[in-house]
Amino acid sequence: DLSALRVEEVQNVINAMQKILECPICLELIKEPVSTKCDHIFCKFCMLKLLNQKKGPSQCPLCKNDITKRSLQESTRFSQLVEELLKIICAFQLDTGLEYANSYNFAKKENNSPEHLKDEVSIIQSMGYRNRAKRLLQSEPENPSLQETSLSVQLSNLGTVRTLRTKQRIQPQRTSVYIELGSDSSEDTVNKATYCSVGDQELLQITPQGTRDEISLDSAKKAACEFSETDVTNTEHHQPSNNDLNTTEKRAAERHPEKYQGSSVSNLHVEPCGTNTHASSLQHENSSLLLTKDRMNVEKAEF
């Protein structure tokens, strides 16, 4: 173990290094160091905050020279020094078990990766560091076993998940096959086929009936047209017969005018059967003409 005197000496050296690497504005270890034209180094955030307070150039807090945003430059070497100082402080805390008085939040800088452990060898070769390295080497064999167990647990979990997924996939297939086998029997399929065939026959029977009705309507229309044509021909046949009657009536009127007047009046009210309204109107006109002729003949006879 380190003596108290040596611990104090190391602590004083760390404090001196820390004062050199402090920012003059925030009085902390410089984060993202930036250098000016006057070779003074500050935190990048502190300098941008200072420049944004005034429009135009501002003055350096140490030498009062003008500073602009374009004049600022990043210093990589200074950032490396800060990183190495942080590593020294971490090693000091691990070796002594004491917390550094002016320690900052170094938890963000710590890294437990194997590459980081290899890099620590180049920091300080001390008894405390050696003991700590031995402890780490002793704890390393235990870690692979834990990793193997965790991997086995994960693989077993994956296997159970896969088996569950396969079961879920197989179950719908089985149910679907069961439904297909038990849903419709052979008799049901035959009945469905016969039902479809009967429906098709009914459709075939319905369509000819409609065509037959249309044919019957067409035949009825044709018969009505033929009947009207026969009526017209009958009226045409009746007209010459009426003319013959008129000639006979004229002759009778010349011989017996008194008797014919009474008979002509009675004939006005008689309509021949089986004739249309057109034929009756023609008869009325003929009878009126005959009456006028008879009157003329009677007057001539009187004179």
Results as ranks from 00 to 15, higher is better:
Lys54Met: 12
Asn286Phe: 00
Tyr178His: 13
Ser156His: 08
Asn105Cys: 05
Ile124Gly: 07
Ser58Phe: 10
Val298Ala: 12
Arg212Trp: 00
Ala4Met: 04
Leu29Ile: 03
Arg70Trp: 06
Gln53Ala: 08
Ile88Gln: 01
Glu229Pro: 01
Ser288Phe: 00
Asp231Trp: 00
Leu217Pro: 12
Pro57His: 06
Gln205Gly: 05
Ser280Cys: 12
Cys273Ser: 07
Ile215Gly: 15
Asp231Arg: 11
Ser216Val: 10
Gly210Ser: 07
Gly210Asp: 03
Leu137Thr: 05
Ile67Val: 05
Ala101His: 13
Pro257Gly: 12
Ile89Asp: 04
Cys26Gly: 15
Thr275Trp: 00
Asn102Ile: 11
Cys38Thr: 15
Gln283Pro: 14
Ile89His: 11
Asn286Ile: 12
Val232Ser: 10
Leu5Cys: 11
Asp39Ile: 09
Asn234Lys: 10
Pro172Ser: 00
Ile124Asn: 03
Lys192Leu: 04
Ala16Val: 02
Glu148Arg: 05
Leu117Asp: 01
Lys64Gln: 13
Lys259Ala: 01
Ser186Phe: 00
Thr233Lys: 13
Lys31Asn: 10
Val10Lys: 13
Ser71Pro: 00
Asn131Tyr: 11
Asn267Glu: 13
Glu254Leu: 04
Gln18Trp: 04
Ser152Arg: 09
Asn276Tyr: 01
Phe78Ile: 08
Arg169Tyr: 01
Leu21Cys: 04
Thr189Asp: 14
Val270Lys: 01
Leu291Tyr: 14
Arg174Trp: 03
Ser156Cys: 07
Gln138Leu: 05
Asp39Pro: 02
Glu32Pro: 12
Glu202Asn: 07
Leu72Arg: 13
Val13Ile: 03
Asn15Gly: 09
Gln283Val: 15
Pro33Val: 12
Thr189Pro: 02
Ser156Arg: 07
Leu62Cys: 06
Lys108Arg: 09
Asp213Ser: 04
Leu146Val: 11
Leu27Ser: 07
Leu51Asn: 04
Leu2Phe: 09
Lys87Thr: 05
Pro272Cys: 06
Cys38Lys: 15
Asp218Trp: 00
Lys109Val: 06
Arg6Lys: 09
Leu217Lys: 15
Cys38Trp: 15
Val10Tyr: 12
Gln18Phe: 13
Asn131Trp: 11
Thr68Gln: 04
Cys273Lys: 15
Met17Ala: 07
Ile25Met: 03
Arg174Met: 00
Arg162Val: 08
Asn246Phe: 01
Glu8Gln: 08
Ala301Thr: 07
Leu21Val: 05
Val177Ile: 00
Asp119Tyr: 13
Asp294Met: 13
Lys221Ser: 02
Glu187Arg: 03
Leu94Val: 09
His278Gln: 03
Lys222Ala: 01
Glu271Ile: 14
Lys49Met: 00
Gly159Val: 11
Ala279Gln: 00
Val34Asn: 12
Met127Gln: 00
Met127Leu: 07
Phe42Gly: 09
Ser58Cys: 14
